[in-house]
């Protein structure tokens, strides 16, 4: 596996957290994600990648963290996973995927509109192919979140 295909996503994540939430997320050791595994997150934003390779990028948060982050962004208190939370999380994953394309310029890629999966113990419908998914755990000052990236034929 060549890490250079994952790095753009990580860089984009750090960048967008810095710009949006004024946070400096810290990377922990990445691992291979088992599609069946349930990591107990409350909200995930998912974006599909198509074109010369297929893939998925998702970012998953516990409820408290994403609410606190969104409060930072909008500047007022939020008590539930409301439209603002969903709107901004979708935008975040959109920016991560869009920005990462710059680092994957040898592939012509198209990204989908983001979709949001929410609810305790929700599951993401990952592609059924044998594409491996790499999960990168991050820590913020308000708690941890996960970024997961799967790219067919690129990450082996």
């Amino acid at each position: 596996m060549d890490t250079k295909y994952i790095e753009p996503f990580i860089e984009a994540t750090i960048n967008v957290f810095r710009e949006f939430y004024k946070e400096e997320p810290i990377l922990r050791s990445p691992f291979l994600f088992d599609k069946e595994e349930n990591l107990g997150w409350d909200l995930s934003a998912v974006i599909g990648i198509a074109g010369e390779t297929k893939g998925v990028v998702s970012i998953s948060f516990p409820k408290n963290l994403i609410i606190q982050l969104t409060e930072k962004l909008v500047g007022h208190e939020i008590d539930s996973l409301n439209d603002d939370v969903i709107d901004s999380t979708g935008e975040i994953v959109n920016i991560i995927a869009g920005n990462a394309k710059k680092g994957l310029e040898q592939y012509r890629l198209v990204i989908s509109l983001p979709s949001i999966v929410e609810g305790p113990d929700h599951k993401i419908a990952w592609p059924t192919s044998s594409m491996p998914i790499i999960t990168i755990p991050f820590d913020t000052s308000l708690g941890p979140f996960h970024l997961s990236v799967g790219l067919e034929d690129i990450i082996k």
């Binding site: 960048n15 710009e19 920016i95 920005n99 394309k101 710059k102 994957l104 310029e105 890629l109 990204i111």
Partner: peptide, 27 residues
């Protein structure tokens, strides 16, 4: 103003007629 950061995207957009292009997150 978009998240699409690849050069070929910018070229495509300028070709379509935009005068300038800014990648999100916006500075």
């Amino acid at each position: 103003i978009t998240s699409e950061a690849a050069k070929y995207n910018v070229i495509e957009a300028v070709k379509a007629g935009v005068n300038d292009y800014l990648v999100k997150p916006v500075d």
